[in-house]
Amino acid sequence: MNSTRLALGPLLYYWPRQATLDFYAEVADSPADIVYLGETVCSRRHELRLDDWLDVAAALDAAGKEVVLSTQSLIESESDLKALRRVVAQDRFRVEANDMSAVRLLAEARRTDWIAGPTLNVFNPVTLEMLRESGACRWIAPHEMSGAALADVLAGLGEPLETEVLAWGRLPLAHSARCFTARHFNLQKDTCEFRCLGLADGITLRTRDGEPFLTLNGVQTQSARVHNLLADLPRVTRSAQVLRVSPQGANTLQVLELFRRVVAGTDSAAAAFEASADCMVDSPCNGFWHGRPGLEHCSLQ
C-alpha cells in the first residue's frame, strides 16, 4: 500500500472565496499528493474564476502537489464550452475530463496527460482502452462500480493504467439542468441568488419518516451518507493506486491524515475506520464497492 497516492477531489460545494482560499492554503501542507481544482458542478458559481484557480494551482504545485484542473460535468451552453476550451488550452496543469466534450477537445489538442473522470461511464476495458488511446493517463472508476467489476475491467487491459477510486465523501449521484437548491428556496436557476453559497456540505433531504437520504447541492444530487472505504483499503488498494477524498465542510485534512496513516502502515484500516466516526457528516456507507445498494454499509467478514 506504500506506493498508494492520496488525491483530494474537486470541491463540489460553493464556499465563499476566502474560505476556499484558506482551505487550499492548508491543503498545501496536507498529506494529499494530488489535488483536483476547479468548479465541476455549476457554471453560475464564480467566487473563484479560472485565473484564481490557476493561482491556487501554482501555489500547490510549488508545494509539491500534482495539480489537476477538473472540468464541468454537465455542459449545456456555448459559454460552458468556452470555459472548457480555456482549461484545455493551458498546458501547465493536467486536466480531468468529466464529459465527452472535454475528451474530444483534449484528444484534438493531442494531450496525453489527462485524467478520465468518474462521469465518463467507463464500465469495460474496450471503452477504457479507447480513452487511453485518446490520451488518458489515469482514470477514476464510476462511483457505482463494485470492487469486483473494477478488478474485471483492469484484468481486461493490455497494459496497466493508473486507477483512482473515490474512497471518502458524500457520493455525487446525479446531475440535472434543474437546481434543487434554488427550487428549495422557490427560486429559478437563472435568478438563484446563489443560495448554495456557504452551504458547506449542501442541504440534507430526508424521507418523511426523518431518515437522511440525499443531499441537495445545486444541480447535483449527492448521497446523505458518507461513502467511506477506510475499512476496505487493503482490498481497494489491490486495484487502485490513487485514493480520492472529497472535500467536506470540516475535518477534510484529518480525513486525509487517517488515509495517510493506513497507507503508510502506521494504523490498521479497521482502526482508521473507527477513528473516522468523528469526521463524518452522516453515517457511513460502502455498498457500491461491495456490489450492493450504495447506501448500505457492509462490514468485512
Binding site: E144, A174, H175, G287
Partner: peptide, 19 residues
Amino acid sequence: VMVEGRCALSAYATGESPN
C-alpha cells in the same frame, strides 16, 4: 429530471441502475 446516463440514484437506493 437528471441527465440520462449520469444518474445513480436508483443504484444508491436499490443496487440496480439504468446504466
